[in-house]
């Protein structure tokens, strides 16, 4: 089963994703993509670690190159999240942009081929309609295209609103 979860900031995506993962087969792998570069990101990572503490996830920290991940056993994978992964892959520390679409898609396919259940958390970055600088616009477009592609490939797509899943594709599990 492959499930894509989308929604804005703080709409309950992580909580719901973990709840779903708990219903699927073990082992449960959590792929953490957030790059720790300041106090705020450190706190965010810590908050998510606390949330997962009692849930027996095997955490794999990888902020780029998810295609290199090799899982020892088939089980359930929770990847969080596409917005960090895409930003990390796209922008190096000098601000250079790389075309990462194909790289990320093959990374997701590689993960999907190694597990029974894959849950991917993404974000709804294109919906404020705002005008940004060229590199941010490129980021919005890339993540948008990735979301479309994942939604096509996956069995279920849910949008989270106030912690409530709204079914956009498939059925509620």
């Amino acid at each position: 089963m492959r499930i894509l979860l989308t929604g804005g900031s703080a709409c309950g995506k992580s909580t719901y994703a973990e709840k779903l993962a708990m219903r699927f087969s073990t082992p449960r792998y959590y792929i953490a993509t957030m790059r720790i570069y300041d106090e705020e990101s450190r706190k965010k990572v810590e908050r998510h670690r606390q949330m997962r503490k009692t849930k027996n996830f095997i955490t794999i920290e990888r902020d780029t190159d998810i295609h290199l991940i090799e899982l020892s056993r088939r089980g359930t994978v929770l990847l969080e999240c596409m917005c960090n992964l895409t930003a990390n892959e796209m922008f190096d520390r000098y601000g250079n942009i790389t075309d990462v679409y194909n790289k990320i898609i093959s990374g997701i396919e590689s993960l999907a081929s190694q597990c029974e259940n894959l849950i991917v958390v993404t974000n709804d970055v294109g919906s404020d309609g705002g005008k940004y600088d060229e590199s941010t616009q490129e980021y919005i477009r890339t993540l948008g295209r990735l979301n479309i592609s994942l939604a096509e490939r996956f069995d279920c797509v849910y949008e989270m609103v106030c912690g409530i899943p709204i079914v956009l594709k498939g059925r509620l599990l």
Binding site: G8, S9, A10, E40, G130, T136, G163
Partner: peptide, 24 residues
């Protein structure tokens, strides 16, 4: 208020998250 690009401004970012969490 949580949709779209995550704001660069810290206060705005935190307020967005606080709104989301309260609504949850």
């Amino acid at each position: 208020v949580g949709s779209g690009i995550i704001p660069v401004d810290e206060t705005e970012r935190k307020a967005r998250e606080a709104t989301g969490r309260l609504c949850n």
